[in-house]
């Protein structure tokens, strides 16, 4: 929310090649990714920081939409968190979770939650963080 954001200027200043839909009111809503479902597949919760990794199983075109295949393709070269995938796809995290859950369910993605649990956030971890922060270039 720093200065220089396009929001303060007119529509003409909206960046080209920006998010889908460009300037103007959104044309394509994110809920399309849900396929009309209210909840993502399965019951396991996905967090913004859930790490996603693609498996070798390509999602078949017949069963998956373009957005699913795009996510799988994005993750082919390496791992990303859900929130990063969402930003790359131009979708909210909530919609991305639907896609990720579908792909995990079909064996096309693996999901991992590398976020420490409450009891794991201890002095050792924060001390590691401090050592790391101080060692940053």
């Amino acid at each position: 929310m720093t200065a220089g954001r396009p929001g303060t200027s007119g529509a003409a200043a909206a960046p080209k090649g920006g998010p889908p839909g460009g300037r103007g009111r959104r044309l394509i809503p994110a809920y399309l990714a849900t396929g009309g479902r209210e909840r993502p597949r399965g019951t396991a919760g996905f967090d913004r920081l859930t790490l996603l990794v693609a498996t070798d199983q390509q999602p078949p075109e017949l069963d998956f939409g373009p957005e699913h295949r795009r996510l799988w393709t994005l993750l082919r070269p390496g791992a990303l968190t859900v929130v990063e995938c969402a930003a790359h796809l131009g979708l909210p995290v909530s919609a991305t979770v639907f896609l990720a859950a579908d792909l995990v369910g079909g064996g096309h993605l693996l999901a991992r939650s590398p976020v420490p649990k409450a009891e794991e956030i201890d002095r050792t971890l924060i001390e590691r963080l401090l050592v790391g922060l101080r060692a940053l270039p």
């Binding site: 390496g78 968190t81 976020v115 420490p116």
Partner: peptide
């Protein structure tokens, strides 16, 4: 990309 394993995310 991130390494697929070994990281702690905060």
């Amino acid at each position: 990309y991130l390494p697929a394993t070994g990281q702690t995310l905060m």
